[in-house]
């Protein structure tokens, strides 16, 4: 990953009639990053990806891909050569063979005959479809078609890959295989922007996460920083309820949020709190609690999943 931005978006807006699908959104995605875009249905993820792929044109704002500014109502051929776009549906040509289909798209992207032949083999190997090279597309299963679509998307070695819900509709094993393929693409240095509802998958390979809500990015940052900032909680378990603890935590300046108390099966209760202090501050907190005579049975940091963070931060859309 480098500090060269592959995607630069400034104040991007897309309005459909009265509905604002993307609302003054600004974003930078750097070379080699895998940027996961999450958000509830209707948050504007698909619209944003379509704008980046040039399938739609923005109402306002600016998009720069790999240093080249997208011009309104222009062919933008140089930018198109750098982008691979896979929409959530994946229409294919049933009358073509797998080989002919990939060759066709390779030629559309100006690949020369000899390298193209080699490249078709490479992408078929990437998606494990070498054995289907001469098969008609109409004979492939849904999972195979989805993999073939990915192969088509990367045939021209794009600098930027835009994937909109690429694993929707796949069974768990096919999904795991698909995610492995995406990781291999990531290892080749391709910058990827991916939207998905399966957050555990994104957690697995994304370097950066953006949470969209009502057309805006409500959160955007490196996954590790997000975890550090939002996902780490201090778990405190006590052997018996103690009202002093509740009051103490409510008044403590470094405790910014508290979850609900959870009753433990073996007696006692626990809660997670968002603690903004350092480890030394945490140690001091523990010392004070013990000095106060509160019977602490557990005191440690826990990690929230991306799904938990998303539910807490992103899913506040009222409609």
């Amino acid at each position: 990953m480098t500090d060269v931005p592959v995607i630069q978006i400034h104040q991007l807006t897309k309005q459909f009639d009265d509905h604002i699908a993307v609302d003054q959104l600004s974003l930078e995605v750097y070379a080699g990053e895998v940027y996961g875009l999450i958000g509830p249905n209707g948050a504007g993820k698909t619209t944003l990806i379509r704008l980046l792929s040039m399938a739609d044109s923005p109402t306002a704002g600016e998009i720069i891909i790999d240093g080249q500014k997208m011009a309104r109502n222009e062919a933008n051929a140089a930018i198109k050569r750098r982008i691979g776009f896979l929409p959530d549906d994946f229409p294919l040509y049933d009358d073509l063979s797998v080989n002919d289909y990939l060759e066709y798209f390779g030629q559309l992207y100006y690949l020369e005959p000899e390298p193209l032949n080699q490249r078709v083999s490479e992408v078929l190997a990437l998606v494990n479809l070498e054995h289907k090279r001469s098969s008609l597309i109409s004979t492939l299963s849904r999972g195979m078609k989805q993999r073939l679509s990915l192969a088509r998307t990367v045939i021209h070695r794009p600098r930027l890959l835009l994937l909109d819900e690429p694993v929707s509709g796949l069974d768990p094993i096919a999904r795991i295989d698909y995610c492995k393929t995406i990781k291999r693409l990531q290892s080749e240095g391709i910058t990827i922007l991916i939207s998905s509802h399966i957050l555990s998958d994104l957690e697995d390979f994304c370097t950066t996460i953006g949470i969209m809500e009502q057309g805006r990015l409500v959160e955007s940052g490196r996954l590790q920083s997000l975890y550090r900032r939002e996902g780490q909680q201090l778990l405190i378990a006590v052997l018996e309820p103690d009202s002093r603890l509740e009051i103490f935590l409510e008044e403590h300046p470094l405790v910014t949020a508290q979850n609900e108390w959870v009753e433990l099966a073996g007696g006692g209760r626990k809660l997670g709190v968002t603690f903004t202090g350092s480890e030394a501050d945490a140690a001091e907190l523990l010392r004070v609690l013990i000095l106060e005579g509160i019977r602490v049975s557990e005191f440690h940091y826990t990690q929230e999943t991306l799904e938990d963070i998303f539910v807490r931060l992103g899913y506040q859309q009222t409609s």
């Binding site: 792929s53 040039m54 399938a55 062919a75 051929a77 140089a78 198109k80 050569r81 982008i83 776009f85 929409p87 549906d89 229409p91 294919l92 040509y93 798209f105 559309l108 992207y109 100006y110 088509r152």
Partner: peptide, 15 residues
């Protein structure tokens, strides 16, 4: 109708 025309539109080849 199937959406394949969009892929062709998005290719860098001139219309």
């Amino acid at each position: 109708r199937t959406g394949t025309l969009n892929f062709i539109r998005l290719s860098p080849r001139p219309a």
